[in-house]
């Protein structure tokens, strides 16, 4: 990762005490920009910790997009109608596209895709735990669209106003596509819910399995969230985990009613006084277990990812070798490589 010094504007070479003063001046300017809701751009000076936080978050987001392809791609070859097959293929393709934007956004912070993929494959960086649950039936494709993409949108819409420009702009496009996916998932479940008794049961079963993990997607409760306070201060994050979770529950309750499906929480009810829904206690033990690697599909997901990467190595090497030869021909140089 590049250091702050590497991103100092020209002429800002400073040492010792002078260096400290310069850093302080840049920090003040950075803080003022954030406070004024201005966007921080790649060439702007930024604190190392801000950069590191963004890299961690954007990488995790990018990894989630590409790992997230797996549970849904699991149903592409079995989609029960050609229309649904086209919708699902387009959705999984969009996720690959989101991965591309997000790895590009991370690149603006000085970290390449190869380096990030390496961290994913070696377990040094994470992806959203939700994708460590299996898609057992076709209805899971609908439940993922409705609940998982719904939760993702609730999380991501505020990121369109994130202080870091490239990330905010990538999120605008991602959110538009995600909201399309969410409606498609809802519509898939509606068709099942209104279908045969077997289809209805399939939809209910999927919602029963995906509801609680979807609530966990907002992260641990505010008082246990490791990175929240600083991220809020930097305007990377705009709302607390618990606020977003509450917003999501309030959105889902009427939608579940329209779907004719039941959310699996006996404590879920409207609280007149608070003007929002009360809901049951989340099993945080499960959350931490899945996060630690003990979910139903952690091993399977990362193994498939590594396998695809390793089996594709000869293809990437060939492309690089071909490009290098081609570059050599054009410029008269040899040995140029493409990462």
């Amino acid at each position: 990762m590049a250091t702050a010094a590497a991103h100092r504007p020209p002429g800002a070479q400073a040492h010792g005490a002078e260096d400290t003063a310069v850093i302080e001046a840049y920090t003040r300017r950075f803080d003022a920009a954030v406070a004024a809701d201005e966007r921080i751009e790649p060439r702007d000076w930024m604190p190392d910790a801000y950069r590191a936080t963004l890299v961690r978050q954007i990488a995790q987001h990018a990894h989630s997009e590409i790992i997230g392809m797996q549970p849904e791609a699991n149903w592409i070859t079995r989609a029960p109608s050609l229309r649904r097959k086209a919708i699902l293929m387009a959705k999984v393709q969009d996720e690959a596209g989101h991965g591309l934007y997000l790895y590009s956004a991370a690149e603006t912070l000085g970290v390449g895709r190869d380096e990030l993929l390496d961290k994913l494959h070696s377990g040094r960086q994470k992806y959203s735990s939700i994708f460590n649950y299996p898609t057992l039936t076709w209805a899971d494709v609908g439940a993922i669209g409705w609940l998982v993409d719904g939760a993702a949108i609730t999380n991501q819409v505020p990121l369109c106003r994130c202080s870091y420009g490239p990330y905010a702009r990538a999120m605008v496009r991602v959110c538009k596509e995600e909201s399309f996916h969410q409606r498609q998932g809802y519509e898939l479940l509606l068709a099942l819910s209104n279908g045969t008794p077997e289809q209805h049961a399939m939809a209910q079963d999927a919602v029963d399995r995906w509801w609680w993990p979807s609530l966990m997607m907002f992260g641990p409760p505010d008082d246990e969230s490791q990175h929240s306070a600083q991220s809020m201060e930097w305007k990377i994050k705009r709302h607390s985990n618990d606020d977003l979770r509450q917003r999501f529950v309030d959105i889902c309750v009427p939608q579940a009613e329209s779907l004719g499906l039941t959310l699996p929480d006996p404590d879920l009810r409207w609280n007149e006084e608070r003007g929002e829904h009360d809901f049951g206690t989340i099993d945080w033990t499960e959350f931490w277990e899945v996060l630690k690697g003990n979910g139903p599909c952690n091993e399977q997901r990362i193994t498939q990812r590594r396998k695809a990467h390793e089996e594709g190595a000869w293809v990437r090497e060939a492309a690089a070798a071909h490009a290098a030869k081609h570059t050599g021909e054009q410029t008269g140089e040899t040995g140029a490589t493409r990462a």
């Binding site: 791609a73 592409i76 097959k85 293929m89 591309l100 695809a308 089996e311 594709g312 190595a313 990437r316």
Partner: peptide, 21 residues
């Protein structure tokens, strides 16, 4: 479509899906 999630590079996830679509 069987390639989804198995392609050698991310750009090919997009390209192969595009052709499939």
């Amino acid at each position: 479509g069987e390639w989804a999630g198995h392609a050698p590079v991310l750009e090919e996830e997009v390209a192969l899906a595009n052709i499939a679509l």
